[in-house]
Design a protein around this nucleic acid. Structure first.
Lengths: 335, 335
DNA sequence: TTGAAAGCGCTAACAA
DNA sequence: TTGTTAGCGCTTTCAA
């Protein structure tokens, strides 16, 4: 069922069919009707591939996130997809599983598919080979959630450093003086690094002891073992600042295994502000990132850049500290 | 940067370049080296669109779910994307927002893009115009989560009816005799309908009074108002069976607004088994669907069908009743 | 082992 | 208002 068949049946040329289908030029009422009938008759559906090849436009965006299983990314993709769809763009989606080589292979595939632009969250924007590939291919992209370090790339994020700083300060205000940070592979995530910087500054500013950061691999969720040494120390931390909400949830569970109840014995704070965190037991103290709005902004901005209506922008969304039951006063601690 | 440029630089024909790039035919070592050098030199990246047009294969799957903001779908898509990616397939993703007309327009767009197959969750498979479009286009698809009614289409789901039956029976075992069901637009979702059938049968089998089902629109999250009449009745239900976990979460919150504490005063059960439900306060009593595994199965099965290695299959995954704190004994009820 | 050539389905000058 | 025509970038006979 090609445009040629339709043209033959309708007794016109392919050019006229194309004009009729795309409303891209004058078509007489008679021709239009004949064409409509022919299309009904043979169930013609334009092959987008042919159009894409001819016009060198795909109306497709590539979206790459670490994982859909973390609601922060799922929500962002939801906002993105909605906005892109509204503008008639397709979304090619992939997850990297936090693996740099997968980031690269996905980006290569997206480039091969001639996506017009990309929205991505990478592990570390400085060292990302995926980003280098994009730069040399000169395909526009928007970094989402990654901190806005570089001047030459559009980003949408919050001020991770300051947000972490504020959150840790709130822990101090609750009386906590020994506060540890737990991060998922700090060395591999620029977000964790920023959040660590904020944590560190808050600790230093208050003259508190700087705890060693606890790095946990994403693949190894045997948290209890990692935390055992820390928790059973004589001067164990009274509060744990986790680099993400999902990690905080795992930490709370791991602490329970070790006999440390939250928030009675220790406090735990997260970061991301996933919606469901409010309904957790205990509800999560965290920093809220407006994920869906950020995804929406990313899509709109990328499309605006594609049409030349916008230039590189580093958008910082406001964040919000959301207090929750997972943080209590430090008085009840064990040491 | 086309294959022609590369051919010219390497001093060979485009056919040889194509063979070299795709390893699809004999290429002498000398030619191969010249081609490799040429590709490096001009940064050539094969245009997939050209290949797709020529070969009439896109290696792309379309995925349509109601919403990514519900973890049950996000998890399923995660499993799907992972499996598809492993087999070298791209995933085109869209969300319908539970709207039938959006389902249709997305499917039309996917067909235009010549996806080789689709995985979708539709509101109601019987009445879905989207499915009719797929049937007449003769593009293979897998229904995910939708109950397996029809014989002529691959589906992956659990036994919704029996799962709901089991769950409601467990409520009865806890002493509940007035059990209401709350569903999101029953008339628009075949899953809700199945779950209602299971609920109804459990009620009837135990000789209990059949309560009117409460239907709430997805768009109208003003649940408290909807529930007020029911909750304040003299013989108010002591337990609410919600058609999804997300709805259960909203219901628990709405009940709190009305002064009905869960599970002290009323019990609430959900359906879906989103992972985070275990960590809610109270933790959710629910039916667990193995969403990620179902997505994985859907992708593998669809690809197997594309390669002729599988035929239409109706896969029923096992479910699991996961007890939680949201359901308590009926003794504490108000009426 | 290689290259010439045809053509996938479509759009867009351009001429009529 | 319409049709002819020339490709878009690629793969793939087929003959050499």
């Amino acid at each position: 069922m090609t445009i040629r068949e339709v043209a033959k049946i309708a007794g016109v040329s392919t050019a006229t069919v194309s004009r009729a289908v795309n409303r891209s030029g004058p078509v007489s009422p008679e021709a239009r009707e004949a064409i409509d009938r022919a299309i009904q008759q043979c169930g013609f559906r334009p092959n987008i591939i042919g159009r894409q090849l001819k016009t060198a436009r795909t109306r497709t965006l590539g979206v790459l996130v670490p994982s859909l299983k973390n609601p922060i990314f799922a929500d962002a993709v939801a906002g993105l997809e909605e906005a892109a769809g509204r503008e008639g763009y397709n979304v090619l989606l992939a997850a990297s599983g936090y693996r740099a080589e997968k980031e690269l292979s996905v980006v290569e595939a997206f480039l091969g598919s001639r996506v017009e632009g990309l929205v991505l969250t990478v592990a570390d924007d400085d060292r990302s080979r995926a980003l280098h590939a994009l730069d040399s291919a000169r395909v526009p992209y928007v970094l989402m959630f990654n901190p806005a370090d570089r001047e030459d790339v559009s980003t949408v994020s919050i001020d991770n450093r300051r947000a972490a700083y504020d959150l840790v300060c709130s822990l101090v205000r609750d009386g906590h003086r020994r506060i540890a940070m737990i991060a998922g592979s700090l060395s591999e995530s620029d977000r964790s690094a920023q959040r660590y910087a904020g944590y560190r500054q808050a600790i230093v500013d208050h003259g508190l002891p700087l705890e060693d950061i606890v790095e946990v691999k994403f693949e190894n969720p045997n948290l209890s073992a990692c935390l055992a040494g820390l928790v059973h120390r004589r001067d164990a931390p009274t509060a744990y600042f986790c680099s993400t909400d999902m990690l905080a949830i795992a930490v709370i569970r791991a602490l329970a295994v070790l006999g440390a109840r939250v928030p009675d014995m220790v406090s735990v704070a997260g970061f991301d502000g996933i919606a469901i965190g409010e309904h957790l037991s205990p509800s999560l103290s965290t920093v809220v990132q407006p994920a869906e709005a950020m995804g929406d902004w990313a899509a709109h901005h990328l499309l605006a850049r594609l049409s030349g209506e916008a230039s590189i922008t580093r958008k910082i969304f406001p964040y919000r500290i959301r207090p929750g039951e997972s943080v209590g006063p430090a008085s009840g601690h064990r040491a």
